[in-house]
């Protein structure tokens, strides 16, 4: 496996507070890599440093062989970034926004095909602010794909979405991965990480405390003699909800 992102001893200090305390990890090509952890663990900070949006205090970061200190511009060209919150002119239509971002990368884009790939072709004349939460996130992912990047970064893409919207966002993310793009995602939902990620790094208070595939992490825990206090039921309430309301994409 070939690493496309190499992070080594990364530190980020805000005054005397250390938000990221010397973490190291690698992300491999074409995998979905999850940064997990509670709020305030330093996930977003780490992501924004790799995305070239934030200065680091120490350590080194290489993206596809480019050193972030020397070659941030080359990195910007091959990554797609989705921020936790909006980041778009609220009153422009989706087609216009895609035109804008295509302009920023200096390229021509078939807006219709792009919107179709994220299931928003019927919304192409809607304004960004008129979209539902799930649609905003799908659109946001579409804009990260405009310039056919080799890596995309998604910061808590499913926070605040209903179960259906989360599931079809997972499908979309898997599709993006299957088409050859590496995906780095942050989340604080463990079920999401378990279903979606090929490998995860668990962060807490600015440190990575464990890193492996979800299965292996679970196996390790079970091997250590861990048992769930209650017997596992055959279905969860979420399964009931999805069964009743259907898996179909909901157009709120």
């Amino acid at each position: 496996m070939e690493p496309v992102i190499r992070v080594n001893g990364l530190v980020k200090r805000y005054g005397s507070f250390e938000a990221v305390k010397g973490i190291s990890f690698e992300v491999y090509k074409q995998e979905i890599f999850g940064l997990l952890g509670p709020n305030g663990a330093g996930k977003t900070t780490t992501l924004e440093i790799i995305e070239t949006l934030r200065e680091k205090s120490a350590g080194s970061v290489h993206v596809a062989g480019h050193d972030i200190d020397r070659d941030a511009d080359s990195i910007k060209r091959i990554i797609g970034v989705q921020l936790q919150a909006a980041g778009y002119y609220p009153s422009l239509t989706l087609t216009e926004l895609i035109g804008l971002f295509a302009g920023l990368y200096n390229m021509q884009v078939d807006a219709e095909a792009l919107l179709k790939s994220v299931g928003l072709e019927e919304k192409r004349k809607s304004r960004f602010k008129e979209l539902s939460g799930g649609q905003k996130q799908r659109f946001s992912i579409a804009t990260t794909l405009i310039h056919k990047p080799s890596i995309i970064f998604l910061d808590e893409p499913t926070t605040g979405l209903d179960p259906q919207a989360r599931r079809n966002l997972w499908d979309l993310i898997r599709k993006v991965r299957d088409e050859g793009t590496t995906v780095v995602i942050t989340t604080h939902y463990m079920d999401e990480a378990e279903q979606l990620c090929d490998r995860v790094a668990i962060m807490d208070s600015g440190k990575i405390i464990s890193i492996d595939s979800p299965e292996k992490l679970i196996d390790k825990l079970v091997a250590s003699g861990f048992e769930r206090p209650r017997e596992v039921r055959k279905a969860s309430l979420e399964d009931v909800f999805l069964n009743l309301t259907g898996h179909a994409w909901t157009e709120e």
Partner: peptide, 16 residues
């Protein structure tokens, strides 16, 4: 507002 809605930040992640 561009700063507030992170439009500017989103631009930073592009080569502009």
């Amino acid at each position: 507002n561009l700063r507030q809605t992170l439009v500017v930040k989103r631009f930073f992640a592009t080569p502009i």
